[in-house]
Computed example of a mutant assay.
Amino acid sequence: MTRFVHDQFAKDYLEELLKPYGDVKSSEKISGEIKEIDVLFTPSVQQTSNLQLLGLLGRFAEFPAILEPFRNAASGDEICDCIQKLLEVKAGLRRDAKANKIRLQESDIPKLWVLSPTASPTLLSSFNVNQKEGWLPGVYFLGDALRTAIVAIHQLPQIPETLWLRILGRGSTQSQAIIELQALPSNHPFQKATLELVYNLRQNLRVNQNLEEDDRELIMRLEPLYQQDREQAKQEGIQQGERLVVENLLQVRFGSLDKELSAIIEPVLALPPEEFTPLLMRLSREELIARFGGQS
C-alpha cells in the first residue's frame, strides 16, 4: 500500500532534518503491546546548530519529542493510540528515575506532536483542544498534563516557518511546499537532502499500480522538478569537469596555481573546451594573463 511508502518517507525525512540537533530514533519499540513510535527525538545537551532553520518544526525540537506523522487524516482512535504511546514512554521514564533514585524533570518527558494532513472541527472538538498564544494557526493543544498537540497541516499559514511541516501535507499543500523547497538557495543545509528524499518518494510511488489521485498528481508535479534538477546536476558536473581540466593544464605547464593564474580560470571557462584547450597549451604564462587577466 502506498501509505507505507509515505510513512517511510516521513520517518526518513524527519530523521534527516532533526539529526543535526540530537538523537533521532525511528520505529522505536516500546513496552506493553508491540507498538512503535514513528520518531522519538532527544535534543543534544549542548545545542550547536541553529534550530530556527526548521521554523515551527524547530520549536517542536527544543525539547524531547515524539513525532507521529499521518498520511491520511488522523482519526480519534489513532490519536488516542499516540497518546497511549506517550504515556507508556512517560511511565518508563518514571520507573528508570525511581530505580536510579533521581527526580524525573518535567522537561525530560517528551511532548507528542500528532502531524495530520487535515483535521476536522469535529475531531478537534472531541479532544477539547485549545490554541495557545504565540503559536501559529493549525497547532492545537490538549490539556497541559497530556503534553500533546495536534498539528492540522492544511491550516498552517503558507510562510517559510511552516515549510518543513507542510512537506508532510497532502495535495496542493504538499505540492506548494515542494515548489518552495526547490526554490530555496542551493546552499541551504537541508534543501538537497530533502529533494533527494522527495525524488525517492516519487520513484517508490511510480512502481505501485493502485495509486490514489493525490499520489498521481504528486508524481506529475514532481516530474518537471526532477528533470530540471537532474539537468542542473548534469551541467554542474560538466562545469566541474571543465574546471579540473583548466586547473590541471595550468599546473602541468607552470608548476603551481598562484594568485595570478587562479584569477584567469573563470574567464577561461567562459570559452568552450575546444577553444580554451589549445590556448592553454600554446600561450605563455604572460600571454594568458594578458589575455584573460582583466576579465575576472
Rank of each mutant, 00 (worst) to 15 (best):
G22W: 09
V129P: 05
T162C: 14
I219W: 13
L201F: 09
N130V: 13
R103V: 03
L112H: 01
Q251W: 04
C80Q: 06
E247N: 04
E15P: 04
D229V: 00
V207P: 05
T42F: 07
E213P: 06
K11G: 15
Q239G: 06
E236Q: 14
G134I: 01
I238M: 02
R170M: 08
H154S: 07
S172F: 10
Q203W: 05
T277L: 04
N72C: 08
Q239H: 13
E275Q: 03
E78Y: 03
F141N: 00
N200A: 10
P189E: 09
F63A: 13
S31N: 12
L168Y: 03
H6Q: 12
R166H: 05
S126E: 05
D12P: 10
N187A: 04
F4V: 15
P117N: 06
A233C: 05
N50T: 10
V45F: 11
F190I: 01
R3K: 14
K11C: 15
N210P: 03
L67M: 11
R71W: 14
E217P: 05
G294N: 02
Q191H: 01
Q295Y: 02
G255L: 00
L280V: 03
D144T: 09
K25M: 11
G143M: 03
D108M: 03
L40V: 01
K19G: 13
I83A: 02
L271C: 05
L136Q: 06
P121Y: 00
V114C: 09
G169K: 01
S49C: 09
D214M: 12
A145W: 03
L123A: 08
E212T: 13
P189Y: 03
Q8Y: 04
L18S: 14
L244T: 12
I83L: 13
L168A: 08
G171P: 06
L163I: 00
D96K: 12
L261F: 02
P20V: 04
R3E: 15
R243N: 10
E266Y: 03
L54C: 11
F127V: 10
G237K: 12
V198P: 11
V198C: 09
V268T: 06
A149E: 06
I150Y: 07
K11L: 15
S175N: 07
T194C: 12
L17S: 09
N208L: 15
I159P: 04
L124A: 08
G55R: 00
L271Y: 00
F254V: 01
T48I: 13
R221Y: 13
P272K: 03
G237M: 12
L197T: 06
